[in-house]
Design a protein around this nucleic acid. Sequence first.
DNA 1: CCACTGACTTTAACGCGTTCTAAAATTTGA
DNA 2: TCAAATTTTAGAACGCGTTAAAGTCAGTGG
Lengths: 217, 217
Amino acid sequence: MALQAEHKADRRAHIQRVAARLVAERGYDGLTMRDLAHAARVSVPTLYNLFGGKDAILCAELEARIATIAARVAPLPATASFFERGVTAFEAGQRLLEASPEFFRACARMFMTSPDAQPMRRRADELAVAVVRDNLAAAKAAGQVASWASPDTVARHALALYNATFLGWAMGELDLGELGAIASSGMCHVLAGVARGAFADDVVAALTTMEVTDARR
Amino acid sequence: MALQAEHKADRRAHIQRVAARLVAERGYDGLTMRDLAHAARVSVPTLYNLFGGKDAILCAELEARIATIAARVAPLPATASFFERGVTAFEAGQRLLEASPEFFRACARMFMTSPDAQPMRRRADELAVAVVRDNLAAAKAAGQVASWASPDTVARHALALYNATFLGWAMGELDLGELGAIASSGMCHVLAGVARGAFADDVVAALTTMEVTDARR
DNA sequence: CCACTGACTTTAACGCGTTCTAAAATTTGA
DNA sequence: TCAAATTTTAGAACGCGTTAAAGTCAGTGG
């Protein structure tokens, strides 16, 4: 029974690799199950046996990437200010998108289309929320967040704002620079209401220097 | 040439009505071009002749609804506070969703799926942005918005936050009550950073009385 | 070593949105 | 009223994701 399982795992990994390559080359719609089966030297029903559907293949690949990303996440430097820590995390996300834009575009498309991918999206969201929430909780403990504000709620609003902009990028309405500008402006606006002390000074300073013009119209 | 155009318009209107009914009954995926053609006593290619595709039919119906909505929009009462005016507009939107949930769910699905529907979405967005922007501009003129804040940018952030929550509702993750609670909380958070004076007092008062628990997890 | 079990493959098919063909119907202009 | 032009029709077809059936071959257990 061991060899069989190993072969199955090998085939899964191989198919995933080929699928990731095809998606990177041709996008979500450019990846067809028939093409993928042919490119991976496998029959179409095998794809369904091993994964369950087109979206499940992308989910598996995303799951794998999230695992490696989560493993590599360095704890944010405690010496930096809360605002700087947020900027660092934000820029890490930007570099991720920059590295494989077509893949994450395809993920966005999948999240919008397939209900099966919802749990995967939730997990990715929770990962991002956790980073922001932890930073906000620390800031609140340091008295730099309004007492009535919930770190979890604020983090979710910030992520929702990011996600909305991310969708604009995935749909081709915004380039990566505009995504960065709009999303950071939006997140700063959310933070502006709850930040206090030095944290608030940083946020308002960032907001006042930001370009007022908005690419969304 | 007149009769032909008239008949074409009649057929278009008839098909649109039938399509709206079918979508309301069976949702976006439940509406198939073959079913629609049969129900409207028309051939499938005719649908493509008259509209251009499945999404275009929904777009036409949405366009019609937006026109009637825009015509009925009563100017927000000038006597009310800026915050109350915002609440009024927000609740009007909620009632819209409540009246034909399946239709707007289908619109969301279409916006997420079809690039052809992008201009339609943009137009709907601009309509909503305009309401918030105008209110914010008036508030700023009255000195109740921070000087560095751009009414347009803040309005777009608020709408992005609403849209993200709206998608959650459309995908079945949230019910209408949760949509209202989360979206209003999010928009208040955005406003909290830029509101000043009595406007700020209203926003913070609303935020402090809001349920801290968040349905998104 | 061999029969067996299970997975993979082949082949075909389904329903979907969409598009093509040619024939039929209807409106237009004279 | 009649011929020309345009629209609508029926029907088949395409590629897509997905699935069912039966054939085929490997790995497993005795």
